[in-house]
Design a protein around this nucleic acid. Structure first.
Lengths: 351, 351
DNA sequence: TTGAAAGCGATACCAG
DNA sequence: CTGGTATCGCTTTCAA
């Protein structure tokens, strides 16, 4: 058994408070006494104040929780999520704060428990599917949090982009190039839908908030070009991965009237789509493909996409948590996006 | 102020233990009573047992610490480190354990404090530069840990590869192709050395353990081919990044007798080297380049390298921590490596 | 089943 | 500068 602060106090012959001060408030006792305490502590093998006990007493932990909707191990697979984490980590480093990554089980009840049991001072919630349930649990604990994806409530801290406008911008790029017959590609478009084309009556039905906003943005542009929602093909992928994107595109009905462009809700999906559409080369007419995020792999692949900075998002989120601006108005940060046109998009080929 | 368990107990008119049981041991009280307790708790806005207090009392936290040598935010930049984390996360998910990522400041004293203050049940230490200092601190706390890089002490839990043999295998591939005049490329080859060629009298002087072992493996192969250490050029990079690798290679003495091959200690460095050596194309003779790790970017770049699985490493490390095998002999896991030959290496061009 | 009592290990106020 | 005292919020025997 490791010795406790109490044991050290007894060994040195001083009170517990004095030993505590020797560690936490050097200015509260004479240097000699402090040294004597530290020395005997070392000798006895006392590892210093127990972090858990200290947290309990002090009322704060020194760690912020990071919550990902999907399985935690998946998050590391998503390049954009990793950049977000990088940003969070940078801010945390500056504040000497640790990051607690909490794996959320699939079922809401389990997720709830996980959030309740996390020993943290606040949360960064990254794009949670069941975001509201999770946020409610956090609110229940009375802890501060920052969201990134869903539209926030008044007063909630939030950092994000104008998803819909950004999505509209790529789509307008395509309508400008003459594209009219297109397929939209997103993940979790409808609950439990099989990979492939889908009939979506109303964009509002899409459960995943980011997918919903981006699809809506795409639709805005096409509506402006005279194409209504039912005329758009919607492809769904089971998750946000390259292979899922590839699989979804393979399910495009063969033969008649293939789309001239695929608009994906993420670069990862778009890269999967590109693989399929450029790979076999079955169709001689190249199909335009666009993505979203501008991850590192987008540039070498020549992918036209919308750029947003994952690092900035993470950094801002953590900063909002760690030293919130006093005025509530600046607690919602809207980050910029840019349309990046590369070679994966071009004019509609002449038939 | 949030209500406490005590308040709930008083409100319901039962003892604190009973309320505690309602949460933690449902079988210890009648379902009706339990429900009554849970209901009033909800009504009062009691968020459930405080995680910190619970940890203190129970003596365990439900989180494992992950320690990276370099700045935490850099770790996310290193593809291999991210794969390692993915593996750790997978294992953690299975055990419903959280991951505490602890940023370590540069100075040893700060790092020590960070490790002392982390509320965790154990540590996964990924390739720490000042590994011994950190491990000593962990030992001081009496917490279990798993290392990945340095050669472990008897009885320490460890997971890794045979760095030296693996490095030797790529180098032998090159000597087999006839390469004799080569440059080795690693990061942190000597403390505070400027980017570029370096005089290293003895491999044992290299401070970074992984770099040291890999360089030694390279040297083994060349020794077998009759080339002794002083005849090898050693390039050092300030850190393990693409740009650092590129910069180091640019410092190769121009003109006479350029190397016919560059052996890098990591894919990241190798990819940087490739950029420079293939990029401008100043030298008409292609220089062979090899890496180490086989990260995702290696294949598309045609990089010859040594494959090891970051996920396996992470998974094994976490597993060793979370449910250690009873017999000490199986507490050190040696993972396999494979030489993957691609197009970046070839025979020595005829002069 | 339920509850009383004894900590878990440390900190902070406040009087000396 | 030092030390007594009262918590922090919960869990866990153990006896009723």
């Amino acid at each position: 058994m490791k010795p406790t602060l109490r044991a050290v106090a007894e060994a040195v012959g001083v009170s517990r408070s004095t030993v505590s001060n020797a560690y936490g408030r050097p200015d509260q006792l004479s240097p000699q006494l402090r040294q004597r305490i530290l020395d005997t502590a070392r000798q006895m093998g006392y590892p210093g104040p127990d972090p858990t006990a200290r947290s309990l007493r002090r009322g704060f932990v020194g760690a912020i929780g990071v919550l990902f909707t999907s399985r935690l191990s998946y998050a590391f697979t998503d390049p954009f999520a990793v950049r977000f984490l990088t940003g969070v980590a940078e801010a945390a480093e500056r504040h000497e704060s640790s990051l607690l990554l909490v794996p959320l089980p699939g079922e809401p009840a389990g997720a709830r428990k996980a959030v309740e049991n996390a020993a943290v001072d606040g949360f960064c919630v990254y794009c949670a599917g069941d975001e509201e349930g999770i946020l409610d649990t956090i609110r229940g604990r009375g802890l501060p949090f920052v969201t990134t994806s869903a539209r926030p409530r008044e007063g909630d801290r939030w950092v994000g982009i104008d998803e819909r406008a950004a999505a509209r911008s790529v789509a307008e790029h395509l309508t400008g190039l003459g594209h009219r017959r297109v397929a939209l590609l997103g993940h979790d478009v409808l609950p439990d839908a099989p990979t492939g084309p889908l009939r979506v009556t109303d964009v509002a039905d899409v459960p995943h908030p980011t997918t919903r906003d981006r699809l809506a943005g795409f639709a805005d542009a096409f509506a402006a070009a005279g194409i209504r929602w039912p005329e758009l093909t919607v492809l769904t992928a089971p998750d946000n991965t390259r292979v899922a994107g590839a699989a979804a595109v393979r399910k495009l009905p063969a033969g008649v009237e293939p789309p001239t462009a695929v608009l994906a809700c993420s670069d990862v999906l778009a890269l999967g789509a590109l693989e399929v559409l450029r790979g076999a080369g079955q169709d001689p007419r190249p199909v335009s493909v666009t993505g979203f995020d501008d991850i590192a792999e987008a540039a070498p692949a020549g992918l036209t996409t919308v750029r947003q900075s994952g690092e900035d998002k993470g950094r801002s989120a953590a900063a909002l948590l760690l030293d919130p601006p006093p005025d509530a108005t600046t607690r919602q940060i809207l980050l910029p996006t840019t349309l990046v046109v590369r070679t994966s998009s071009g004019p509609v080929p002449r038939s």
